[in-house]
Design a protein around this nucleic acid. Structure first.
Length: 853
RNA sequence: GCCGGAGUGGCGAAAUUGGUAUACGCACCAGACUCAAAAUCUGGCGUCCGCAAGGAUAUGGGGGUUCGAGUCCCCCCUCCGGCACCA
């Protein structure tokens, strides 16, 4: 041990030690409890940023803690190495995506090792390797077999900048999740996964993770799935064989329907236009709406002005028999429900706005319950009055003007009217979802090829399992044009049909990279398996993931897909649980001041407020950086980067290191073989130090379970402050003193391990232990409740709830003694003098409150 | 608009879940060491009154429950995040 703390020296030394001893390598071991600590796998952009450092520091702290508690801790890392940036590099610089990706991985791997994150590196995986993406393709085939993967032409979200399709999740808010370009609509043939089959389960089984996942993530997923319970109702079209089906959550308002409104893309419009029954102005309107919908964005735009046109068709309300016009309008979405709605202006804001603009009748059919009597008896001109309403009345209430249904409550009518419709054959109860099927085709090179072959004779033919993987060619031309570069590689495209052996073509689209990340953490459990994605027994031991840590940006995309994937894996018998992740923590972002603005913003190159982890490690050491990152804020909060904060972390480490230096010789030789001192050998100060030690252990152990790292560090600082205040000089210390100091230092060092593993290893060695912290029987320190108990307490005494004095007591001073001591206290007497004591509240070990009048 | 989260010193934040509000750290101020600076160490640090002892006051605002509220209940305000013509 050096006298001074030299992080660069210590860190290299222990990283080498861990590497040589395979310190973090684990295997399935049925005698030990597993703990699976997982951080979201990084995209190999080339450089680690502070967000990564924070993510992995959190995971590493938890991993070390669980490891020291005796768990068999799986802590792996890998690379989400397919995707767009590699292909951009290929287009711009003519470098093959694979070369670019692998160079980046090599560099980032080195960075991770320099931070000293305790990964089992033997389990490292990368999505772009055929050994990995073979299983992406395998899963695709399994879904195809079960009808969960299908191909259809549809309007998709198209990123004009990247020239590729985006899934619904990836174009949330009308902009590309990656580059921020405004998303366009385009019709294209592509592959989908039937995630909507799992909509109900994705919602229902959330119950199992409530409490373990942040509320806001669950809420976002709930909103995204967007379950809505209501009913379908069929409106017949007059003088035609056809009818139009609407979806409504408010069937109770159906007597107030004064029009049917359909989307521009609605089949009714198309079919009638073919028969030339539609007027040309309607046709023109429909084309105009369709065209503007393609350009439409809702990224911060104002609400689009509602527009519509009367088709001249007449629909018939199946409940009332009333006839009403059919309109086409831009505010009805083809993608949701049936693409047709019944317009009830009196009870829906949008319909109200539309009706006002086009002077459609507004008829009130629900009244507020409290005014029920008045309304029915004193308001004969109700219809006229409701014409003047400034807003729609959207609450539940009581039905009026609704034929036989008048007088019913909305809640009851909603159920009964749907049943009635079903009995009469013109409708039924229905549940709709906002969730759409997952479009996974990408017109890109750098992804897993969709394992499908098109044969002129046999049609769509899946690649046989034994022919997997369908590998990417070594050469392709990267032009950036709007189709997959694979289409230009003849030896890839041209193949033989697995069925008829005739000439055939391969699918040239690749799969969304979110497929890679939907199941990667299962692969970590068995990363080199060549016969299956993983061994079932192995994942049964390790999964579900005990704790997952990552950014909030994946709250909907990745975390929804992986839940879906797990449910599918369950259905084909690969796992026996519903949810892949028991506990999720979403870390806050790392921000830095943007120069000249006074604003804290996420670190980024373009804002010039980025901080390079390598620079920080070079300046302060990895341990100090990690300590600061975990101490400065609770993990889910924003972390404001402050270099003075790191300096504080270094100061603390130097202080602790200095204390070890001061004591280590005396402690390691004098106490090594001595049995525990008797109680009488401990001075008051030594007993007090031991108390602090054991209180700290208890506190930190509890904090770790809740991932409260910041308060853990604070507690360690307190313990080190207590050690600093401990007066004895090493050479004069009594046996009791030495024992107490040793206990405090060893506990301090062990509990520092999750935060500053390199420094902890070094100090642990200085205290006379060989082979490293993980060797032998080293364990997280245990609290001795007896020693942690306070010997003497200061009990606050309040008069009428205000603190007025304190009295000394022991933890087992009986209640009445506390009461007498409080009442007898001089200061208290000055407040109670001449007043009547009404009541004395004594909370043992806590406080006394005297109520006077 | 709907849903979720949060408002505590100059700043990041604590508060054993109803019991001493502001732990720990950063910044700042004073002192020691130094020719000086840095580093280090010691002390101070919510606000107001006071030389002090001490007192008053304070957890976004208002009300309530309670012996006692940052914490529980009601109303309001502000900020952050998500979704948004979803019928």
């Amino acid at each position: 041990m050096d006298e001074k703390y030299f992080p660069e020296k210590i860190e290299v030394k222990w990283q080498k030690h861990w590497n040589e001893t395979n310190a973090f390598g684990v295997e399935r071991d049925d005698r030990r409890p597993p703990f699976y600590c997982l951080e979201m796998l990084p995209y190999p952009s080339g450089f680690l940023h502070m967000g990564h450092v924070r993510n992995y520091s959190i995971g590493d702290a938890l991993s070390w803690f669980k490891r020291l508690q005796g768990f068999n801790v799986l802590h792996p890392i890998g690379w989400d190495s397919f995707g767009q940036p590699a292909e951009q590099a290929a287009i711009k610089r003519g470098i093959h995506p694979r070369d670019w990706t692998e160079e980046n991985i090599a560099h980032m791997r080195g960075q991770l090792k320099r931070i000293g994150i305790s990964y089992d590196w033997r389990r490292e995986i990368a999505a772009h390797t055929p050994e990995y993406y073979k299983w992406d393709q395998w899963f695709f085939l399994k879904m195809y077999e079960r009808g969960l993967a299908y191909r259809r032409e549809s309007q998709v979200n198209w990123c004009p900048k990247e020239e590729t399709v985006l899934s619904n999740e990836q174009s949330s808010g009308g902009v590309c999740w990656r580059c921020g370009a405004i998303v366009e609509k385009k019709n294209i043939e592509q592959w989908f996964l039937r995630i909507t089959n799992y909509a109900e389960q994705l919602l229902e089984e959330m119950k199992e993770i409530e409490g373990g996942w942040p509320e806001r993530v669950l809420t976002m997923q709930r909103n995204w799935i967007g379950r809505s319970k209501g009913a379908y109702v069929d409106f017949a079209i007059k003088d035609a064989e056809t009818k139009v089906r609407v979806f409504t959550t408010r069937i109770d308002t159906i007597y107030g329907a004064t029009a049917i409104v359909v989307a521009a893309e609605h089949p009714l419009v198309a079919s009638l236009s073919e028969e030339s029954q539609l007027k040309t102005d309607v046709m023109q309107f429909v084309e105009r709406v369709k065209a503007s919908a393609q350009k439409r964005t809702n990224a911060g735009d104002e609400e689009i002005e509602k527009e519509g046109i009367n088709t001249g068709l007449i629909a018939v309300n199946p409940f009332s028999g009333e006839a009403m016009p059919v309109w086409v309008a831009n505010y009805v979405l083809m993608e949701y429900g049936t693409g047709a709605v019944m317009s009830v202006p009196a009870h829906d804001e949008r319909d109200f706005e539309f009706a006002q603009k086009y002077s459609l009748p507004i008829r009130r059919v629900i009244e507020r319950i409290s005014h029920e009597q008045e309304v029915i008896e004193h308001d004969p001109s109700r219809e006229d009055q409701s014409m003047a309403m400034p807003h729609a009345f959207t609450d539940y209430g009581i039905l009026v003007n609704s034929g036989d249904w008048s007088g019913r409550l909305s809640e009851d009518a909603i159920e009964e009217m749907a049943l009635f419709a079903k009995a009469r054959g013109f409708g039924e109860e229905a549940v709709t979802y906002r969730l759409r099927d997952w479009g996974i085709s990408r017109q890109r090179f750098w992804g897993a090829p969709v394992p499908i072959i098109y044969c002129d004779r046999c049609g769509v033919v899946p690649v046989p399992e034994e022919d997997l993987p369908v590998t990417l060619p070594d050469h392709a031309e990267f032009t950036g044009a709007g189709q997959s570069p694979l289409a230009g590689v003849a030896e890839f495209v041209n193949t033989t049909c697995p069925k008829c052996k005739g000439a055939a073509r391969r699918e040239t689209d690749t799969m969304d990279t979110f497929i890679d990340s939907s199941w990667y953490f299962f692969r970590y459990c068995d990363p080199r398996n060549e016969r299956a994605p993983f061994d079932k027994e192995k994942i049964a031991y390790w999964t579900p993931v005990s704790q997952y840590i990552g950014g909030i940006d994946h709250a909907v995309m990745h975390l929804l897909y992986t839940r879906f994937w797990t449910k599918f894996m369950r259905d084909i018998g690969l796992v026996s649980f519903n949810e892949p992740v028991k506990r999720l923590m979403t870390q806050g972002m790392v921000t830095n001041l943007v120069e000249g603005t006074g604003e804290w913003k996420r670190m980024s190159k373009s804002l010039g407020n980025g901080v390079d982890p390598d620079d920080m490690i070079a300046a302060y050491g990895a341990d100090a950086v990690r300590l600061f990152v975990l101490f400065a804020a609770p993990p889910e909060n924003e972390l404001r980067w402050q270099e003075t904060g790191i300096e504080g972390a270094v100061r603390f480490l130097r202080r602790v290191y200095g204390m070890i230096w001061r004591w280590h010789e005396r402690l390691s030789d004098a106490l090594q073989r001595r049995s525990d001192p008797g109680a009488e050998e401990f001075s008051v100060e030594a007993r007090s130090l031991r108390r602090k030690t054991h209180q700290t252990i208890a506190r930190i152990t509890a904090d770790f379970e809740e991932l409260h790292f910041n308060t853990s560090v604070a507690a360690l600082m307190e313990l080190s402050n207590a050690l600093g205040d401990f007066q004895a000089e090493p050479h004069m210390a009594s046996v009791g003193d030495l024992y107490a100091v040793r206990e405090a230092l060893e506990s301090l060092v062990l509990m520092l391990t999750p935060f500053t593993p390199h420094a902890a290893e070094e100090m642990w060695e200085s205290l006379g232990h060989t082979g490293g912290i993980l060797s032998g029987e080293t364990r997280w320190p245990q609290t001795d409740e007896e020693l942690a108990r306070k010997e003497e307490l200061e009990i606050p005494v309040q008069v009428n709830g205000k603190l007025r004095s304190r009295i000394r007591a022991t933890p087992d001073t009986p209640e009445d003694e506390l009461r007498e001591a409080a009442l007898g206290d001089d200061k208290i007497r000055s407040f109670t003098n001449g007043r009547e004591v009404v009541k004395v509240i004594v909370v043992p070990q806590r406080l006394v409150n005297i109520v006077v009048r």
